[in-house]
Structures are given as structure tokens and as C-alpha cells.
Amino acid sequence: MSARELTAQEFLDGAFVANDVFDLRPDYRVLLIVVEGIKGSPSNDASEKLLVQAEASAVQLLSGTAVQDLPHIASWREAYRAFGAKPQRTRNSLEALTRRAEKGLPRINALTDIYNAISVLHQVPIGGEDFDQYRGSPQLVRARGDENFDAVASGEVVMEHPEVGEVVWRDDEGVTCRRWNWRQGRRTGLSDETSTAYFIFDCLDPMTNEELTAAGDALIAALGEMDSDLTTTSRLITRD
């Protein structure tokens, strides 16, 4: 079933995290947010302001601490090792952005720029996806190894498969993000035609639920500055 046939609430109600993922990290929590009514926009003054703030924040964070020793990044490195990934080779999205922020974050489009900036500012991995491209609700599971993941390599679309036991986000059609929050797939990626976006905030200790909620609120507020007619629906999933 296409996500277009589901309301945002039905989509989120159907989302789940598998028990064997929680077994890896019982402290894992995820905030899922669907934002409807988005109008695509190139990078603009509002997104640029946030990116500049995020770049300055990263410089300050790294002034006396190595990136791998920042508390939230270190926690994700431990999580990657728990399912067999090598974090020095496949960096979680938060680490990749924080490392890049010192020299300048990418300018892609307003929607992507904003969630990248919020990720760095609040030190939480965030994924942004096109709601309408989903088949059914999202699932965070440990991979069998035969699932399809459509990616781009050297400018060409290629079909990959996750490793057995790898933590992946998926829907009814295939994997949408590999290694928890390392690499998003092409099929569900945001585009200039995206009108409903789905955001994933992955959280581990030492981040608190209050800090996680604040990050989600910051994203909603930033998007609201661009368009006041947005509708948002959210759900927090924890082991409890």
C-alpha cells in the first residue's frame, strides 16, 4: 500500500522498531514527524542563517574535543560497533555533518539545508524522506541481507543489499536507509516535488527525551517560518 493511501497518523501508528534492535540499544528512542503542505524552495535566507549557526556551533564543539569524542557521536559509534559496522569507515549522519560543518555544510535546498542544520545544532541524526514514495509504514529492523536498497554510485543507479544483521530502516518495498542512519536510499529521497516530508530523529543516551523533543520543535518552527500553512503529526517510539 502506498503511503498516499494512509493518513499521516495511520502511517506513524504503523511504524515500529523491532525488539532485536532495542536489544542492541535499550536506550534507543526515535521521534517521527510528518510535515504536510511543503512547497519546494531553493536555499534561501532562512536556511542560510541556520546553516551558519550550525557551522559556528560545530567549530565551538570541536574547539577542545575530537569529533569522535563528542558524547552523542561517541554513543552512535558504539551502536554501530554493536551490529558489526566500522564507524571509522561508515560514519553516522551526525558525525559526517559535524565533521563537514567546520569547513562548510552543503547547500542543497531549503528543506534539506534546514534539517541538516538542526541535526548539527542539536547533535542528533535526522533523516528526511518523501512521504509519498513510501510503501506502507516505516520499520527499523535487523536485515536478512536480501532486501533491496537502491543507491547511486559514480552517478549510476545501483541495487545493493544490506549485510545480514545490519540495522536498517525499511518499508514494504525495501530498505530506505542503511546502517541505522548512515546512507539514505534514492527511492524515498526528498526532491523539489516533495509536498509531504517524513523526518526521523534517532536518539541514544546521553540525549534526553526533552532534548529530542526540542530538536523536533526546532525543525517544525524553522519550516513554519517558510510556510505557515503546514500540518505536522508526530510520534515518539521507545522500548516502553
Score class of each variant (00 low, 15 high):
209 N>S: 05
174 G>W: 02
157 V>K: 08
179 R>L: 01
108 I>P: 00
15 A>H: 13
37 G>S: 08
234 S>Y: 03
6 L>K: 12
83 F>C: 07
163 E>C: 10
87 P>Y: 14
221 A>V: 01
93 S>M: 15
94 L>T: 12
92 N>C: 10
169 W>M: 14
230 L>I: 15
184 Q>G: 13
172 D>Y: 15
221 A>S: 10
79 A>Y: 09
142 R>G: 03
154 S>H: 01
124 V>L: 05
232 T>N: 06
163 E>D: 08
137 S>M: 07
167 V>T: 08
81 R>D: 09
226 M>P: 13
94 L>D: 01
134 Y>T: 08
144 R>W: 06
107 R>A: 00
24 L>G: 15
40 G>M: 14
121 L>I: 03
16 F>G: 13
145 G>N: 13
5 E>V: 14
144 R>S: 09
168 V>L: 06
191 S>M: 05
222 A>Q: 12
147 E>K: 04
21 V>E: 06
149 F>V: 01
17 V>A: 07
72 H>C: 07
81 R>E: 08
234 S>F: 06
195 S>N: 11
179 R>P: 06
89 R>M: 15
165 G>D: 01
148 N>K: 06
28 Y>T: 09
15 A>F: 03
163 E>L: 06
200 I>L: 06
81 R>I: 08
174 G>Y: 04
194 T>Q: 04
92 N>W: 05
150 D>M: 10
73 I>S: 06
99 R>H: 07
80 Y>W: 13
181 N>W: 02
99 R>T: 05
207 M>L: 15
32 L>G: 09
21 V>W: 09
184 Q>P: 03
62 L>W: 11
38 I>D: 14
16 F>E: 04
8 A>L: 06
29 R>W: 00
5 E>Y: 03
84 G>D: 05
111 L>P: 02
187 R>A: 10
8 A>D: 10
153 A>Y: 14
184 Q>H: 11
208 T>G: 07
174 G>T: 04
158 V>K: 15
194 T>M: 04
150 D>Q: 14
202 D>R: 08
204 L>Q: 11
169 W>E: 09
